[in-house]
């Protein structure tokens, strides 16, 4: 088997003095969708941010596409082909839809699908209708679509997708799941954090379960659905 696209080993992260992540290890293979699961506060968001170089202090062995990421700043990591979609959306509210996409634009990258605004508007028809609209005047679901589309403009080969279904209406959640499957079909690899088992099972090949900053379980999505014990211990109320 070839080297995975992303290999994370011994990931530690801190916020101030609080030690949030303690030795997370995971891999994402080429063309694979991996779900990072766990309850609120388990460390899912921090894991994605730490991979992206967005936490103040981290320590890890991080390899992506044969390159070492552990000492790079966020913009260098992004330029290597890692796309980050934050959970709190963080669209540029004063910018129009088209301008938001422009901020994300990077040159085409060999080995990753190339995106244009037109291609993205075909994927997210809602956005096409509001290309001149400012972010302040968009619904939560539209903002989530825009966040994803904006990151895709960087032509990433790996997508870090933080809680894509959170706080969205059921219909939008379904559209989001469709979009993730489309991206996988285009050849993208995805690492997504998710609380919703049903969303994760609809899109992911494998799952990693974390709790209080540690990796607790890893396996295929099908195994997770069968394993009542793991679900009860780390996911259910």
């Amino acid at each position: 088997m070839s080297e995975p696209l992303l290999t994370v080993d011994g990931l530690q992260a801190w916020y101030g003095r609080a030690h949030i992540l303690d030795g997370i290890a995971l891999t994402v293979g080429r063309g694979e969708v991996v779900a990072l699961m766990g309850r609120n506060g388990a460390g899912k968001t921090t894991t994605l941010k730490a991979i992206m170089g967005l936490v103040e202090r981290r320590a890890a062995s991080l390899r992506f596409d044969g390159r070492d990421l552990s000492a790079l700043p966020a913009h260098r990591i992004a330029r290597l082909g890692v796309g980050y979609v934050p959970e709190d959306r963080r669209i540029f509210a004063d910018l129009t839809v088209e301008e938001n996409l422009e901020v994300g634009r990077q040159p085409p990258r060999p080995g990753a699908p190339t995106w244009t605004p037109e291609k993205l508007f075909a994927l997210f028809p809602n956005l096409a209708e509001m290309r001149g609209r400012r972010g302040t005047r968009m619904s939560g679901g539209e903002q989530q679509m825009l966040t994803l589309a904006r990151t895709l403009m960087g032509n990433p080969s790996l997508l870090l997708l933080d809680e894509p279904s959170e706080g969205l209406a059921p219909l939008i959640v379904k559209q989001m799941a469709d979009a993730v499957r489309r991206l996988k079909a285009e050849g993208l690899s995805v690492l997504l954090s998710e609380q919703s088992l049903s969303f994760a099972s609809a899109v992911a090949d494998r799952a990693c379960v974390i709790e209080t900053g540690r990796l607790r379980w890893t396996g295929t999505m099908a195994e997770l659905l069968k394993d009542d014990g793991v679900r009860a211990a780390y996911l259910a109320v």
Binding site: R39, S165, P170, V173, K174, A177, E194, Q195, S196, L197, S198, F199, A200, S201, A202, R231, L235, A236, V237
Partner: peptide, 17 residues
């Protein structure tokens, strides 16, 4: 009671997708 509540389970484990 709360643990047994199906609506609570769906909020935590996700209902629709």
């Amino acid at each position: 009671q709360v643990r047994a509540n199906p609506r609570v389970q769906s909020v935590y484990l996700g209902g629709e997708a």
